[in-house]
Write a protein that binds this DNA or RNA. Structure first.
Lengths: 142, 142
DNA sequence: CCCATCGTGCAATAAAGTTGCATAGACCAA
DNA sequence: TTGGTCTATGCAACTTTATTGCACGATGGG
């Protein structure tokens, strides 16, 4: 998703110690063109070197808390994770295939939403706007 | 949410047998002005008459499959349920408070999205568009 | 009345995520 | 270097949310 991103610098910029595991988690997420579930990330990491499931969850929480990674809900049960919007990546909607469970990133322009205007009239704090389309992807259609 | 809705007729219109439990589940969902979690629905039902937790899940699945009820994801773990859009209820976005876990329905006009145009160019099937804002509600702000 | 079907309950299980505690490693001051 | 402190990680146990398998009971048609 982001060849311009230097994951180590991203960690440092958030004042997080750089550890192997953190760098690896961020790499797996960043190198994918679509968001992954915690289980996907865990399995991918396991293939290259041992890591504990709980460590993955903890690192994901940390990265989400520091705004490096975004937690995306699905029509299903598990949460998915992708790089959070930043100067290289604008916020964008996602498409979730109910059949195969894969999530796609959609073009930021494809569906626009004026949430700023709404935010001004809303009597609470808005941290995030999530737009998700659910359906069947073209591969599963056949 | 819907004083005009006759839940028994809704069930019949979907060719579902009308049972006490189904009517009760639909009533609890329909009489609320905001979506509820399965646990909320179960507890509410328990207060008036015994029902099994699994039955609630099964009825929810059934109602969702028949398009009477809509499953709404949250920033958290559990799914929430509200009446599905129909002639009385237009699709609308939701606001989820990360602190208290309550979900609010927002005005259909407050955030509009042109998904029809997008749908024409998308090479898959789109069943549903979900727009959710996450943040802190005004009660939890203080 | 008998059989088939469907809705429900109960127990067990699964999936996804969290917590508590122990160890190991990094970093710093003396 | 040593000792102290802090953080990251691993492991086991647990929680929450949801699903499955099986049995029972009610209902309606032949």
């Amino acid at each position: 998703m982001c060849l311009q991103c230097d994951y180590e610098s991203l960690l440092r910029a958030s004042r997080l110690d750089v550890t192997d595991n953190r760098r690896r988690v961020l790499e797996v997420i960043g190198n994918n063109s679509y968001p992954l579930s915690a289980a996907d990330i865990f399995q991918t990491l396991q293939r290259s070197a041992a890591i504990n499931r709980v460590t993955v969850y903890r690192i994901l929480d940390l990265l989400v808390a520091h705004g490096l990674v975004e937690r995306i809900s699905t029509g299903g049960r598990a949460a998915y994770f992708g790089l959070a919007p930043n100067e290289h990546h604008r916020p964008h909607p996602h498409f979730y295939c109910k059949r195969c469970g894969q999530m796609e990133c959609l073009n930021p322009e494809s569906l626009t939403l004026d949430s700023d205007a709404f935010g001004k009239t809303f009597p609470g704090r808005i941290d995030k706007v999530e737009v998700r389309l659910d359906g069947i992807c073209k591969n599963c259609m056949r």
